[in-house]
Amino acid sequence: MRAIVAKDLTVVRRSKAVMLPLVLVPLVMVLVLPVVASFAPRLAEVPGASDIAQMLDTMPEAMQAQLAPYTNEGRLVVFLLVYLFAPLYLIVPLMVASVIAADTFAGERERKTLEALLHTPTSDTELVVAKLASGFVPAVLVGWASFALYTLVANVAAWPVIGHVFFPTVMWWVLALVVGPGVAAIGLGATVIVSSRVSTFQEAYQVGGVVVLPIVLLVVGQAAGVVFLSTALVAAVGIVFWLLAAVLLVIGVRTLRRGELLARS
């Protein structure tokens, strides 16, 4: 089983189509975004930037309270780094899990190496667990590494404005430790289901991409001041995501019985 995971990940590592998003997306999320955000107040004179400041006034009371201790500039930075980017961070584990799963499920079928694998003495369970682990473990690890890096970059970049270590908040710990892995599991489940219906890595990857939608909704909701990502809300979202993941995985794993894989032509 470990042999399968090791092999899958070697294969994944050698594909540009897989590695490119795997490296670029986390870098943008954890480096580019926080650095740009920290410069936002200094660009406050730029037309449009003041709109963001006004937007803050429309935010829910609870968030206003959270932001109260900071200066005007600090408020903006904290809003961006802590709240607006929180759902964006979830794209990292989601994307890693989906891309790898698209390559190890649909990709393995596309490259036709699946049949030889089925003829080996691995049990159905081992095969499924190994394949899922190949996507899940890297997604969680990359997610946590990104969280660590984001923490560092956010604190350093925001230092001139805030002047003390303000990150991570409790909400972010819940986000990274509970919600992130849940989102990875959703990406995995969705991609496994999609992979059983399409024939190429590309299709699986693209169709699997629709699972970003709930995250985009969170971002928009946050920006519009409709939702406020309190710790309690994030924890609740985490539970819902894990339930959703469980449903998707159960459906997905059903498509992975040995006899059925070859019965489809």
Binding site: A3, I4, A6, K7, T10, V11, R14, S15, E108, R111, K112, T113, E115, A116, H119, T120, P121, T122
Partner: peptide, 25 residues
């Protein structure tokens, strides 16, 4: 079983592929 379809992924080396199958077997 020598299948009609390829057994070893194009992105692995011959030795890696064989080592993988030796382990699983």
């Amino acid at each position: 079983v020598a299948t009609e379809t390829p057994a070893v992924d194009d992105r692995l080396t011959g030795r890696e592929g064989l080592t993988f199958f030796a382990r699983i077997y």
